[in-house]
Design a binder for these strands. Structure first.
Length: 441
DNA sequence: GATCCTTTGAAGGGC
DNA sequence: GCCCTTCAAAGGATC
């Protein structure tokens, strides 16, 4: 269990999160990756292409030689890492000064007045002004981007790749904030110049009407805090953001900015109002972790009588329960951030291959960088638990139907679930997990 | 259309 | 406390 410190301080150093992952082999790998830059990408790509070569030269890969459970067998308890986390905590809680966030993934942590970015006269505070362009770079801010005139960009205001829900294979890094994926839990872009029909638009996925932001809404959302409750979700890919206190909506309640999350949530989102059975926070904005299952229209045959109807109604009631997803862990947050970048760099689209690359990059991250993701994930879990007190990850068990995996002899590690794992045979890197998977089975 | 693949981490049950 | 299983994201591949 994560050791969430219920006390006043922000528990930044959940020790159990600091898992050892650096053995000698990985250090070597890290060094090599650091030195070679993107060479690992090219290596991996070539390895994915050239199966036989990789298999024959697998001994060079340090990860392949690493004991499968080494990371878990040696839990990381480095004091220096704890100190780093403490330092991060101090920066978050005590600073009060907006500094360039060492990790842009959660700049709001460094933004002490996010909860109330308004001055007494109702205008946006200077710090909020400086923050918002960072937070929503897709907005046409008053200050144009360097080398780009405002309103002069042919890609603006509504380039196709901004409208698309899909992550473009190649996209301009100037337009998409590198952290947009993890900032918003999705890919639905906010397009300043192409306001959707008013007052509602239909979610293509759910088919349900959803409110849309209107042109009246400034990109800065300089609304009074009271008015913000009326603002519909600003998430993308149909996935709303977390509810927001204050004048605009970051992916998490701005209570994350400081350590007053508990008071914020207790005052704004009483547990009974955010209970899973309810599914919606008081703003009417569902948590991004919620996925409402589509209502199936089943043909009722009157022959089976009430028994069948009872079963159906029970089934329907089960289906109507909003599916609250697990909060993302550190690696998932990292993946959301980096996926588009990797896709753009290597033109790979297959998630399995991309995830392998991301896994290597994850290991290549410095401890400080990883700690930031761990911290972000911890906040995520904390918020999730506050929003859905009764929720358990176990609730989602069995909702994903999985095919039964046939047990395979250890001599055939590349065959998983009756299907040949191409990637596992392509790279020694994945041979270990594949084997581990089989041994588990 | 559903599931697999692939990654890491969190969580919970079983022993 | 350790081990195992499941799920979280993502999209092409496969069933």
């Amino acid at each position: 269990m994560p050791q969430l410190n219920g006390g006043g301080g922000d528990d930044l150093g959940a020790n159990d999160e600091m898992i050892s992952f650096k053995d000698e082999g990985e250090q070597e790998e890290k060094i090599s990756e650091t030195n070679s830059g993107e060479s690992d990408l090219a290596d991996l790509k070539s390895s994915l292409v050239n199966e036989s070569e990789t298999n024959q030269s697998s001994s060079s890969d340090s990860e392949a030689e690493r004991p499968p459970q080494s990371r878990h067998a040696e839990p990381y308890r480095d004091k220096s890492r704890e100190l780093l986390l403490e330092e991060a905590a101090k920066r978050q809680d005590g600073g009060g000064l907006f500094r360039g966030p060492p990790y842009p993934g959660y700049p709001f942590f460094m933004f002490p007045d996010l909860a109330n970015p308004y001055l007494a006269n109702g205008s946006l505070s200077p710090s909020a002004r400086s923050y918002l362009p960072l937070k929503w770079p897709l907005f046409d801010m008053q200050a144009p981007l360097p080398g780009r005139k405002a309103g002069d960009d042919s890609r603006s205001p509504s380039p196709a790749y901004l409208i698309s829900n899909k992550v473009p294979v190649v996209q301009s890094p100037h337009h998409v904030h590198p952290l947009a994926p993890i900032l918003t839990y999705g890919g639905e872009r906010f397009v300043p110049g192409t306001p959707p029909p008013i007052p509602t638009e239909v979610d293509p996925k759910t088919g349900l009407p959803r409110p849309s932001h209107t042109p009246e809404l400034s990109p800065y959302y300089p609304l009074s805090p009271g008015a913000m409750g009326q603002i519909p979700h600003l998430g993308w890919q149909g996935q709303p953001l977390y509810p927001l206190a204050g004048g605009f909506r970051p992916p998490y309640p701005t209570a994350l900015v400081n350590s007053s999350m508990s008071s914020f949530l207790s005052g704004r989102y009483p547990p009974h109002m955010v209970h899973p059975s309810h599914g919606l926070p008081p703003t009417g904005i569902p948590h991004p972790a919620i996925v409402t299952p589509p209502v199936k229209q089943e043909a009722h045959s009157g022959a089976n009588g009430s028994e069948h109807q009872k079963q159906n109604s029970k089934k329907e009631a089960e289906e109507k329960k909003p599916h609250i997803k697990k909060p993302l862990n550190a690696f998932m947050l990292f993946m959301k951030e980096m996926r588009a970048k990797v896709i753009a760099e290597c033109t790979l689209k297959e998630s399995a291959a991309i995830n392998q690359i991301l896994g290597r990059r994850w290991h290549a991250l410095s401890r400080e960088e990883q700690a930031k993701y761990y911290e972000l994930a911890r906040k995520e879990r904390q918020l999730h638990s506050q929003l859905y007190p009764g929720w358990s990850a176990r609730d989602n068990y069995g909702k994903k139907k999985k095919r039964k995996r046939e047990k395979q002899p250890a001599e055939q590690p590349a065959v998983i679930g009756g299907k040949r794992s191409v990637l596992a045979t392509h790279t020694t890197m994945t041979a270990v997990p594949a084997i581990t998977l089989l041994t588990k089975a």
